[in-house]
Amino acid sequence: MTKQDVINQVSEKTGLDSLTSRSIIESFFEVVTDALIEGNPIYIRTFGSFILKQRASKVGRNISQNTAVTIAAHVVPSFKPSLDFTNQVRAQGMAVEKKKVKL
C-alpha cells in the first residue's frame, strides 16, 4: 500500500476530497517528524508509539577492504505498536506470503 492508497481510503471513509486528505496525511507526517527531531515521543492510545531508540557504538566490517570500522552511537526512530493494535492484527490470522528463493 502506498501513501496515495492511504490518501484515497481516507477520502472514501471521511467523505473529504483528495486534496484535503492529502493535506491531513502530510501534516500528520510533519508533526511526527518534528516531534521526534525535538526528542519528543508520540503516544497514540490503541495504535502505538513513535519513539527514539539509542544505538550503542559498535565495530562493523568493511567487507570490500576487509577492515574494521567503528560505528558511532546514534539515535534511530522507531514505532512500537500498542497491545490492542497487535492483538487486532493477530486476530485476522492473515497468511504471510513466502518469498521465492532463487537457486
Rank of each mutant, 00 (worst) to 15 (best):
Q65I: 00
A73G: 06
S82N: 11
N62M: 02
P81C: 09
N87Q: 09
K80T: 06
Q65M: 06
I71N: 11
Q88A: 15
A72P: 11
G60P: 05
V96Y: 10
Q88W: 02
V75C: 01
H74E: 07
I71S: 03
V75N: 08
V69L: 01
K80M: 07
K98D: 02
V89G: 00
Q65K: 04
N66S: 08
V76A: 08
V96P: 00
T67F: 13
T70A: 13
Q65R: 13
F85T: 01
G60A: 11
K58H: 04
Q88F: 06
S82F: 05
V89C: 06
M94T: 04
T67E: 07
A73C: 00
E97Q: 14
S57K: 02
I63Y: 14
N62F: 06
A91T: 00
I71C: 01
T86C: 07
T67N: 11
V59Q: 12
D84W: 04
F85E: 07
G93M: 04
A73K: 01
T67I: 00
V59I: 15
K98M: 10
Q88K: 05
F79E: 05
I63H: 15
F79Q: 02
T70L: 10
K58P: 06
N66G: 11
I63T: 12
R90H: 13
A68M: 13
V76R: 13
M94V: 14
N66Q: 10
Q92A: 11
R61H: 14
T67S: 11
